[in-house]
Computed example of a mutant assay.
Amino acid sequence: MSDDPTQVQEFFAARAAGWDSRFPDDGPAYAAAVAALGLRPGSRVLDAGCGTGRALPPLRAAVGPTGAVLGADLTAAMLAAAVRAGRDLAGQLLRTDVTRLPVRTGALDAVFGAGLISHLPRPADDLCELARVVRPGGLLALFHPLGREALAARRGRRLTPDDLRAESNLRPLLAASGWRLTSYVDKDARFLALAVREA
């Protein structure tokens, strides 16, 4: 899919109403990915490109009532679906572009991004923006409930060497953007790359 913001917005707006019903079994995968972040009670976390907010309840459970959970997405229809599902109760929803966040520098402890990296128009710059809003030592999780091979197969495609999520591409991309890759899992049932914000 294109990484043009308008096309991405149109793609998700057309699919928002039925998004959760297309992927009804992803809940445990989201919960496991959030658990892997190791968030503490009171942490401040952003779900970047939150869509229908499937990560918001496990993020809220991880940070507890004293923590802060933000869900940011560019597509109003996806945020409306999150509200219909009651997920706005788990976090504050923001309609905004995650490449230009209205968040103070260093204000967050972590960023969670499900399916995000393939939709960033300028991945190096956009990962720098995510680094900007996270304190040194803070965390980034890039997640998808399917691994690279399984996702490509579902879309009727083959993996290519320029796939941003390949470890050989992702590690230097993150390093150039203020992150250090600390864990990389690419299995059929899960893609999860964890990184720490460098000082």
Rank of each mutant, 00 (worst) to 15 (best):
L174K: 10
L127H: 06
S118M: 10
R84C: 08
R104M: 12
G106D: 12
L116V: 11
R154C: 07
G106V: 08
S177V: 07
D109P: 07
L142A: 10
R60P: 12
L93K: 04
T75E: 12
A76G: 11
E129Y: 10
P136N: 07
E167S: 06
A175F: 09
A72E: 09
L56A: 00
G64W: 08
A72D: 12
A107Y: 12
P65F: 01
L164I: 15
G91N: 03
S118N: 15
F112P: 11
G156L: 13
A80T: 14
L130D: 07
L101T: 04
L164Y: 13
P121A: 12
A72H: 05
R100S: 14
G138W: 01
G137Y: 06
T75K: 01
G156C: 13
R155I: 07
L174M: 12
I117W: 05
S118F: 10
V63D: 04
A72S: 11
T99K: 09
L151K: 10
L93T: 02
R87S: 03
V83F: 01
L142P: 00
W179N: 04
D88P: 00
A152P: 05
L89T: 14
A68Q: 15
R157L: 15
L120P: 01
L140H: 03
D126I: 05
G113H: 02
L151I: 06
R100Y: 05
L130R: 00
E167K: 11
T96P: 01
T160Q: 15
P145Q: 12
T99S: 13
A85W: 05
G138C: 06
S168W: 08
G137P: 14
G178M: 01
R104T: 08
A166S: 11
F112N: 04
G115W: 13
D88Q: 03
A107M: 07
G71C: 06
A61T: 14
L139R: 11
W179F: 08
P136S: 09
R157W: 10
D73Q: 04
G86P: 05
R180I: 13
L59E: 05
P172A: 10
R84K: 12
A81E: 14
A150M: 12
V63E: 05
L159N: 00
G113C: 10
L164E: 14
L89M: 03
L127M: 13
G64F: 02
G178Y: 07
L181R: 03
E167G: 08
R122D: 15
G86K: 07
I117G: 08
D109I: 02
P136H: 02
E167A: 13
L94S: 07
P102C: 12
A176T: 14
L108T: 00
G138L: 01
T75P: 07
P123M: 11
A76R: 15
L173H: 10
A68F: 15
A81V: 00
T96V: 15
A85T: 08
P123F: 06
L174A: 15
F112G: 06
V63G: 01
A153I: 03
F112D: 04
L130Y: 01
S168M: 08
W179A: 02
L70T: 01
T66L: 13
L101I: 02
C128D: 09
T160N: 13
L101D: 02
A150W: 05
P136C: 10
A110T: 10
V133G: 02
L74M: 14
T99N: 09
A90G: 04
L164H: 06
A176L: 12
T75Q: 04
L181W: 10
L151T: 04
R84Y: 00
